[in-house]
Design a protein around this nucleic acid. Structure first.
Length: 582
RNA sequence: GGCCUCGUAGUUCAAUGGAUAGAACAAGAGCCUUCUAAGCUCUGGACCUAGGUUCGAUUCCUAGCGAGGUCACCA
């Protein structure tokens, strides 16, 4: 695609165009394949009207193919006939129709050559970017929000990498805050006599935490006990250490299992317990530098009102820390381990948007220079309303995974009664994760989304399984086609469905750039769906294996193979695997 | 109340200020002796309101209405 654009740019330059030359894709294929909009040119003439733009479009069109000397003599315009069927001025646009055979040859050859690397670029110049997610807490369970967080984080890591950055996924586990104190307090107070954790260790802790939170909200006088416990915890008091370490391990083991199956591969995990004291030290330093000050009741604060960011609380009046305290310590720890970081990306829920503005401003005041980005993702709601732990309608990660898997397994078993059980299980697992991940990634991160188990487990339409199905069909064709021999003539691919498929394949690299520019993996989800849909259209319109002409058959098999390659590359950015059959 | 998001078909979601606002689901009508029908084709159906900037606004600005989030000892 770039080659064609470059040649067209070269051509257009000959027609007295002064401004930048950019191309867009017309809304419908029957209008053209590539468009040059003349609005910019009209603006340069200080007459930004639609009429002027229209005149320019038809003037250029005449220059290119009319009776003008340029059209007749210029070698470039002769050369361009290899590439372009025709061009047409429509309104303020100049639309080009690309020659189907030519673009098929160029695009397919390129994908064959690049293989798994097709589509990526080196724009990032190998700069180091830290991506911090999902920043989960011990002593609590993984719920559907964490799942969305992980899907986004995984995909963004891949997108950064595909754009030439050195993306480093890290995690920051909050294992040392008030929530731990609450949980341990609740455990000691209400459950000290129970010997075996109910419903699994992780769930037991989660339940106790929820119970304790609710109790404390109603019994304010118990707060002091919890605070005492937190102080002991932070001081490393021996009376609480063993219980802390045991329960902490329960949580971490549970996380590891989930991370493994979701393919999260953190390069480094930071724990709050290890960075908190460094954070407290930094608070002292900020106090010395007069960036921080003593506030109400002896608490330590930073006044950020001049930045319209209210006041940041760095240390409680009791002397214990908060999230901000630890996050400062985390910044210190991160910079010790990772040098020359160009950007640090944090992925959390949008409810922390304000918090991260404060944090970034404080770090900036403290002298940190690298780019800091917060990606907030919207709440995950249920069709029947808001999710909240108090109402007891939080969906846990395990629940979703099991529910989707059950449904996928049954459907797969129904379709393939002859398959051995291991194959059914392996296939159903892959389809399940594809369904789940795709459902979360097809939405833009910042927006609130509704998780509907029904539509996520559906296999129709804009879903992961739909795309896997297209890939599975291609596999089937490739198996039957066997190995082709000799050179394949891709210029035989001139049917509309073939041409459209090829053009879409050629746009993959631009989709990767756009996903990066917007920090938005849903661009890749949309692309994968579009390509699968386009291939299904081709599949229905053109016989592949049953066509008489053997050369054409080989070309179509070749096209199928590169569609599969591109689909796989695209799904890989979403950490979704394809299946051989389904 | 201050600040930050967001209002698009019945539903869930798209659209760097640019062509007739795209999909998917749901509804209705078709397509398997033919490469996997978890597929394809066709039919209806939408920019919260009022101003402003612009040749041109779903997109930018202002106000209003509506939804959500957040505003120092919570995570």
């Amino acid at each position: 695609m770039e080659i064609i654009k470059a040649k067209l740019t070269q051509l257009l330059r000959k027609t007295n165009i002064k401004g930048d030359i950019n191309f867009s894709v017309p809304p419908k294929a029957d209008i053209g394949d590539l468009a040059f909009a003349c609005f910019e040119e009209a603006k340069l003439l200080n007459q930004g009207s639609v009429l002027v733009a229209q005149n320019i479009a038809s003037r250029i069109n005449d220059d290119l193919q009319g009776e003008s000397p340029l059209a007749k003599k210029d070698p470039v315009s002769a050369d361009i006939k290899e590439i372009i069927d025709k061009c047409q001025a429509v309104g303020s646009y100049l639309n080009f129709f690309i020659k189907p055979g030519y673009i098929a040859k160029v695009v397919i050859t390129k994908i064959k050559k690049d293989g798994k690397k097709y589509g990526i670029n080196k724009n990032g110049k190998n700069q180091k970017v830290l991506l911090e997610y999902p920043s989960n807490n011990t002593h609590k369970e993984l719920h559907v929000g964490h799942l969305r967080n992980i899907c986004i984080g995984n995909a963004l890591t891949k997108v950064f990498t595909a754009n030439g950055y050195k993306a480093v996924p890290i995690n920051y586990v909050n294992d040392f805050g008030a929530h731990v104190a609450k949980c341990l307090w609740g455990l000691k107070k209400f459950h000290s006599k129970e010997t075996s954790p109910k419903g699994g260790e992780q769930k037991w802790l989660g339940d106790i935490y929820a119970e304790a939170s609710q109790y404390l909200a109603e019994h304010l006088d118990s707060k002091k006990e919890v605070e005492e416990l937190q102080k002991k915890l932070e001081a490393g008091d021996k009376s609480i250490q063993p219980l802390f370490l045991t329960t902490r391990k329960w949580s971490l083991d549970g996380f590891k299992k989930a991370f493994d199956e979701l393919k999260v591969e953190h390069a480094k995990v930071f724990f709050e317990k290890d960075v908190k004291s460094a954070g407290q030290k930094m608070v002292d330093q900020l106090l010395k530098k007069k960036i921080a000050q003593v506030g109400e009741g002896g608490a330590i604060i930073v006044d950020l009102k001049q930045f319209n960011l209210d006041i940041g609380l760095l240390r409680k009046s009791s002397g214990t820390g908060l999230y901000l305290t630890s996050d400062l310590g985390l910044a210190v720890a991160k910079n010790k381990i990772f040098t020359k970081v160009s950007e640090s990306v944090h992925i959390t829920g949008t409810e922390q948007n304000f918090y991260f503005k404060q944090l970034f401003k404080i770090l900036e005041l403290a002298g940190y220079k690298y780019k800091m980005t917060h990606i907030g993702y919207g709440l995950v709601n249920r069709p029947e309303g808001k999710m909240s732990s108090r109402l007891g309608n939080v969906i846990l990660y395990d629940e979703i995974r099991n529910e989707v898997y059950e449904q996928v397994f049954q459907e797969t078993a129904l379709r393939h009664p002859d398959w051995p059980k291991e194959k059914l299980i392996a296939t159903a697992e892959k389809i399940s994760f594809a369904a789940i991940k795709f459902d979360f990634l097809k939405h833009e991160a910042a927006k609130i989304m509704i998780f509907d188990a029904k539509s996520a487990t559906s296999f129709d339409g804009f879903t992961g399984p739909y795309i896997l199905y297209a890939a599975a069909r291609i596999n089937s064709i490739l198996r039957k086609a066997g190995k082709g021999k000799g050179k394949i003539d891709y210029s035989l691919l001139t049917q509309p469905a073939e041409k459209q498929t090829v053009i879409l394949l050629g746009q993959f690299g631009e989709a990767i750039k756009k996903a990066y520019a917007n920090y938005n993996p849903s661009v890749m989800a949309k692309y994968a769906f579009d390509l699968a849909q386009q291939y299904n259209d081709f599949y229905n319109q053109c016989s592949i294996l049953k066509v008489e002409n053997e050369a054409l058959q080989q070309a179509r098999v070749g096209l199928s193979a590169v569609v599969k390659q591109t689909l796989e590359n695209c799904l890989d950015l979403l950490t979704i695997d394809t299946v051989e059959e389904m």
